[in-house]
């Protein structure tokens, strides 16, 4: 591994979720997974709901994002803009599943799909499920 690193920033409208120097980033785009290494060509690509895997040396971290835009700049800056994002590295499966269940219950209370809230809840549920998936996949790795 070279001594070059990437400066990764994950920002949502509510907060800056992640800002660190990393070695490698793997994200899910509309056309499949891509991995960004230092000296990558400047790139802009929309992302899907999914995970961001970050590698620092031998250490791996996982973030959950609800879609967004990835921008790789020529200055070794990598920016991910997303509506919703969380660092799920320290999240255990149980907590993630509980959150998913809560979101699901909430959605079932509002069964009318015409309500404006419904779409938001549906999105939230998909996002929580995504977190569960990431947390459980990570569990298998270890």
């Amino acid at each position: 591994m070279s001594d070059k690193q990437l400066q990764l920033t994950v920002a949502t409208p509510l907060a800056e979720v992640y800002k660190e120097m990393v070695d490698q980033i793997t994200v899910t785009t509309a056309n499949g997974e891509i991995t960004i290494l230092p000296d990558h060509v400047p790139l802009v690509v929309p992302l899907d709901l999914g995970q961001v895997m970050v590698k620092k040396g031998n250490h791996e971290e996982f973030l959950s994002i609800e879609g967004g835009i990835l921008e790789v700049r020529h200055t070794h800056d990598v920016v991910i803009l997303s509506n919703r994002a969380d660092n799920v590295s320290k999240l255990d499966i149980q907590t993630a599943e509980d959150a998913y269940q809560r979101a699901k219950d909430l959605m079932q209370e509002k069964l009318d799909p015409n309500e404006t809230e419904y779409a938001a809840l549906e999105k939230k549920m998909a996002y929580e499920l995504n977190k569960v998936k990431i947390a459980s996949r990570r569990g298998q790795r270890r």
């Binding site: 060509v41 400047p42 790139l43 802009v44 929309p46 020529h74």
Partner: peptide, 13 residues
């Protein structure tokens, strides 16, 4: 900057 590449294309980004 000229080297910026876009996926799938500029307009959709």
């Amino acid at each position: 900057f000229a080297l910026y590449s876009f996926e799938p294309d500029e307009q959709s980004v």
